[in-house]
Write a protein that binds this DNA or RNA. Structure first.
Lengths: 191, 191
DNA sequence: CGTCTATTTGAATGTACTCAAAAGCGGTGG
DNA sequence: CCACCGCTTTTGAGTACATTCAAATAGACG
């Protein structure tokens, strides 16, 4: 499980003690999921934060019309959860579904709280994760608003080449805020 | 300054001790700004987190084309900062500008860190603020992507009637991801 | 009152959408 | 191994919504 340690240390920008690392491992556990399984479901409580060890998943919102809107993708070494549910102990607003058979590390809220209390370095770590998400979302909003679909796609595929390969095109379309037909035309036009 | 205390307690969902509250007041300070002053500027370091006591301001990103894109509005009892800069000690990516003469409470990063260390309740408080922002942005992304401009405007003005009154229409347009002309037509059509 | 900025209106254009259907791809069972 | 089925992607044609460019009003401020 060196993947987790690498993730923590590169996020923090420095190494962590073996003790702190072992404490994390001790209170989290692995679980494997089939393709198309749910890690979280809108309306239900999302009890865990997930660190993807292998595989891929995505979170989405369903609106009144029934459209699924992709919010986030997560592959190896990414964290994902429904933060509204996990942190605030309310029903989830998003659904998280695997795209492939997936192995994840699960961290419950109680264990998360204990961990942060015992090792303040994790307070910092998870705050950085939150801040990074926030900053990324700010940028994404700005670009969704101000750039056209072609620009957004070009930037997306440059920034996340591995996503472009593994994730169905209609989900990338949804993430970018266009219809699958439109993304197909954009790709034809671009290449 | 009971406004701050109300904000903290309603965010936390419970009261805080006088001691904790006084500690906050002791390490923060008030500052007044004219209309059109900057609280933060893209490229410069944003040293403070701002709690708006009176007035209004907004944050925006400027893209390569020079377009300003409104990201967030803040009036009385709202918090605002460039989180990428403030938390991660990097140059700001957004600019924060007052829309009116504004009085704000300023909290520096060092004092913030000390405060959280001494009173863990503030760790929780600021984490909740971050989580709320994150959840709101997720929803905003989903709606920007899936709803048409009229729907977005109707929802915005229902959710933030006070914003609709105090904030110039072209900034609301920018926030919603449409041009001012389009918002004008939407309003005519809606009313 | 005059100037500057914000808002509204008009007409033409364009980007992305809808509806519809065909082609491509992957997996399953005969 | 091939045929079939379901799902994804592509393509076509017509449409709708928001944009652009341009100009006229309306408001705010000194």
């Amino acid at each position: 499980m060196t993947l987790l340690r690498e993730n923590i240390e590169s996020t923090l920008g420095h190494e962590i003690s073996n003790e702190a690392y072992e404490a994390f491992v001790a209170i989290s556990f692995q679980k494997s999921f089939d393709k198309k399984e749910f890690l979280a479901e809108a309306g239900k409580y999302c009890r865990y934060q997930f660190f993807i060890i292998e595989g891929a998943c995505y979170s989405y919102y369903v609106n009144e019309k029934g459209d699924k809107n992709a919010i986030q993708f997560a592959i190896e070494s990414h964290w994902i959860t429904d933060s509204a549910s996990y942190f605030a102990d309310k029903p989830a607003v998003s659904t998280i579904e695997t795209l492939e058979p997936t192995m994840a590390l699960l961290l419950s809220k109680v264990n998360f709280d204990n961990l942060c209390q015992q090792y303040p370095v994790y307070d910092k770590f998870f705050r950085i994760l939150l801040q990074n998400s926030l900053a990324a979302l700010h940028l994404r909003i700005a670009k969704t608003i101000s750039e056209d679909a072609e620009h957004r796609y070009t930037e997306f595929s440059k920034k996340y080449p591995h996503f472009t390969q593994r994730i169905p095109q209609y989900l990338i379309a949804s993430f970018l805020g266009v219809k699958p037909q439109s993304l197909s035309r954009i790709r034809k036009h671009t290449s």
